[in-house]
């Protein structure tokens, strides 16, 4: 190999492409393994218990053709993302206050623990009683369940603001705007972002769960219907749909966002070996 002659920029782009293909390749391999095990399960237990992967895909295709899948996916996305957005907004605000003020933190922390301890299914039941028929049950469940997760992340972030860096900024007479953008936001983000990623995955699952039990429009409703009809292939098709949506949201939005927002968290192996001054 004559990599030494390749300009660094080109070499870097090449490395990134290879890394991307390698990641894609490994994902494909593990998915194929899963499909193989799935197929084997189908051979043993039959279609009623476990329809074959291809049957499931065919069922999904039928759902799409009939114009059922699209609106259901949209309804679930609306519930999950709406609840997620609301929980993020409120959670970051409450968590920041709780992290900055010791008193507020002492008040908020037990509440967060209580709310984290309540099983999500309990919230669904309550939501169905409180919001029966209004279609708000799923959003409510998502908000109350993901809120404590975001609050904890934001609280940790606000608590661990580096006093030394703050002193440095003050010594350089940094205006508030610079302190916010250069100091507080990046630090908070490093704590809040992982919490948001967790909350995002959680919100999706909770929205589907609330829809199954509440019978409100969405992927969950489709699942409930498939259960009533004992149509396992269709149930699997809905699961695949929910999974594809969540994974593409994580892979196409959250991960690139993380890489863009936190390039400074480069893997340790790329750290220079040290040496010179």
């Amino acid at each position: 190999m004559h990599l030494g002659r390749v300009p660094p920029r080109v070499a870097k782009a090449g490395r990134q492409t290879i890394a991307f293909l390698w990641r894609g390749w490994s994902v494909l391999v593990s998915l194929c393994l899963l499909a193989a095990v799935w197929q084997a399960g189908h051979e043993v237990y039959g279609t009623l218990v476990l329809p074959a992967p291809m049957e499931t895909l065919a069922a999904l295709a039928r759902l799409v053709e009939r114009g059922v899948a699209g609106p259901a996916a949209l309804a679930t996305a609306r519930d999950a993302l709406g609840g997620f957005a609301l929980a993020s907004l409120v959670g970051i605000l409450v968590g920041s206050v709780g992290g900055l003020s010791v008193t507020a933190g002492r008040l908020i922390e037990p509440l967060v623990r209580v709310f984290l301890g309540i099983p999500a299914i309990a919230w669904v039941v309550l939501a169905l009683i409180w919001f029966a028929g209004s279609g708000m049950a799923a959003v409510f469940t998502v908000v109350v369940t993901t809120l404590p997760v975001v609050v904890i992340g934001a609280m940790q972030g606000a608590r661990t603001l580096d006093a030394d860096l703050g002193d440095m900024a003050r010594a350089f007479r940094a205006p508030l705007r610079v302190r916010l953008v250069d100091l507080y936001l990046p630090h908070m983000l490093s704590y809040v972002f992982p919490a948001l990623a967790t909350a995002m995955g959680l919100s999706w699952k909770l929205a589907v769960m609330a829809q199954v039990l509440g019978g409100t429009a969405g992927i969950g409703e489709g699942l409930a219907l498939a259960r009533v009809n004992v149509d396992t292939a269709q149930a699997m098709a809905w699961i695949v749909l929910a999974l594809v949506m969540l994974l593409s949201l994580e892979g196409l939005v959250m991960d690139p966002l993380r890489r863009r927002l936190e390039p400074w968290r480069a893997p340790r192996s790329r750290r220079d070996a040290g040496g010179g001054p």
Partner: peptide, 21 residues
């Protein structure tokens, strides 16, 4: 005593911090 650089900013941006202020 310690450099007190912003970990999320590149060396150049850190060196320019005072000018940014």
């Amino acid at each position: 005593q310690d450099a007190r650089l912003l970990p999320w900013r590149r060396a150049r941006q850190n060196a320019a911090f005072g000018l940014r202020c």
